[in-house]
Design a protein around this nucleic acid. Structure first.
Lengths: 208, 208, 208, 208
DNA sequence: GATGAATGAGATTTCATTCAT
DNA sequence: CATGAATGAAATCTCATTCAT
């Protein structure tokens, strides 16, 4: 689909469809959504959908890209990042849990879609890779500074600890395991820090 | 479907369908499988399917139960379990990776199914609960023995570290991250042990 | 579509669809026919159609092949063919007009289909080629016997005179030009014979 | 659609659509053309089309009329027509082949359209009738002059021989039968002339 | 029990045409 | 006049499930 330059109205309609689609996917899952449903939510007729998207799949692809983009954006540890390594890890975990909480269902859908269509697999790998890289480099830096166990493979470790956070987010947010955000961040951070041999800053180690 | 007592032949047919279904689901995913495909694999005619299963979903449910059963079974740390806590963790991780490697695709399908039908959600929760409980109790014991950080919430910790293993298994086996089983088990175990504050047995670092 | 061995009933249904399709195409033209129409005529439900044919086009292809087959068959100048060259031409023309009268609409449809899909073009070329060859060889023989103008290109001539018959058949049968079969065959034959320089047998020139 | 008096600009737009439509139909066939395609070719927006034409069909009708008009015009054997009957036939055949070569695809489309909509049938009959009449009258004149077989039915004969030329044009131009124009005209003319019993002018047989 | 023909609800997609701006 | 967004009536095709033999 060649996206032609759209008028104001066209942009509005397209955006409405995108939003409606995202909501619908979130609520009903990919297969649970019919193009008609999206149209109904967006308040447009059936045919209009195809003015803006080639297919249901194309809509999902766009939603997925938006979600992945948000996940990226939400996890940039900005300039305000704390200097203290432990606090950095805590901040990153908190950000990640929040980003996930906004998009959990859709990312899971994306995982499923990846199972069926490689195109989505690629998107997902990209996403994962960004996080893995970040963790990997963080760990490597700590190792160089003598603050973390130098015998750990940085990539493998980053995958494992990142996976811990991701999977916990899923269990917590999707499967309804009850825990406070504080407790969650605290535990994740303590486990992460200790796992890599980072000496917690004196006075830490409590989730109070 | 009330499973009536089956003749010898009936049992064989049913088993064939079950196996065929499992293979087909594994290969093609739930939606990718048509009842026809299953019948073709099993070498029976289309209509026969409904002699043994109420629906495609019913077949999947049965496959899923079998898989979950195997996951249970495979993870029983038998009487031969090592006494050493660290070795115990290592053994459990190895078993888990192996069990996962046999069933990874189907468990992911089950996760997706749970998204759509609560009935599968229950199965999955049960499965997860077993592992969580096991980890939780293990940790609690270690805490009582003064071998692990007593300030950690046992359940939360078990979920997190268990999630680490599960998610890693997924990344490793399904997403093709390259690593040897040795390295994987070694890292998982070291991270796990250190995360809970278990002093690695002197002279360790390897689980061999 | 792999045509599986069909039961008696299956064969009947398939034949019914084929007949229904042929009738429908004949009456309404390719685009005028919906799969539903064919099913209604055949007295089967919508889905049944796809048990036997992959698509509407596939059905048409089969109808087309049948028609072409009949055209072939109908035009075999059998062993009873007259020895007299003039009478032979007359007999062939009559056969051709009759074959055409049975299939005219469908052959025209096939011509149109060939415009859109090369696959049908091939079928049509085959059909045409058979007739051209036959005419060509007939003429060549006459030329060798000194009965026809030796300076005519046999292929070109066969195409032209064959085209005369075919086009006339179309005008006569499809466009409703009024003429008796006798007059038609008589004129076609006289024109054909004289065009190639065949001396009409003495006492001829009448359509009695 | 009542064609209102158009501004200069309006006329240009309309003409552009007409040309674009003709090209598009020629290239893609009736069904292969979407109104959008025509607009794109003409460089106007979608909605503009309906300012000038009531429907896609109306556009086609106008194109068809233009084509038929050209066929008429192109086949007027002008004042320069040779007096010699044989040469006259040759000239007419040549003109006809050329006219056809310019419009073959569209006339075939018209034939198909006639199949679906009687309105086009009328146009086509008119076209055919003009040629038939011309041939018929030519033959009748020759018969009166004692130059052609008086026993031939003029109309039937004209239809048949005209059909020969038309059908050959189709085979030659549309179906790709290979032949030079010279050979084609020569053969058509010889066959035609001899078929009606016209003694070729002494020294003729070739028009080279 | 087994077979495989029959069913039909439902989903996607196309495109000629209308209409508000 | 021109624009292009919106419409919605078809039409095709899939496949889980039922049922007569």
């Amino acid at each position: 689909m060649i996206v032609k330059s759209l008028t104001q109205r066209g942009k509005r309609t397209r955006a409405a469809l995108l939003t409606a689609g995202r909501d619908a996917f979130e609520e009903c899952g990919y297969d649970g959504v019919r193009v008609d449903d999206v149209c109904a939510r967006a308040g447009v007729s059936h045919g209009t959908f195809y003015t803006y998207f080639d297919s249901k799949e194309a809509l999902f692809a766009e939603v997925a890209e938006a979600v992945v983009g948000e996940m990226f954006a939400a996890n940039v540890v900005g300039p305000s990042a704390p200097a203290d390594p432990y606090a950095r890890i805590a901040a990153a975990n908190r950000l990640y849990l929040r980003a996930w909480s906004a998009n959990s269902r859709l990312v899971r859908m994306l995982e499923h879609a990846a199972t069926v269509d490689d195109r989505f697999g690629g998107l997902l790998l990209e996403l994962r890779e960004v996080f893995v890289r970040r963790g990997e480099e963080g760990l490597r830096r700590l190792q160089q500074q003598g603050l973390a166990d130098a015998s750990l493979d940085p990539r493998l470790t980053a995958i494992m600890l990142g996976g811990m956070v991701e999977q916990f987010a899923h269990v917590w947010l999707d499967l309804g395991e009850r825990a406070s955000e504080e407790a969650a961040v605290d535990h994740l951070t303590r486990l992460w820090a200790r796992a890599i041999g980072l000496t917690p800053p004196s006075g830490s180690g409590e989730e109070a």
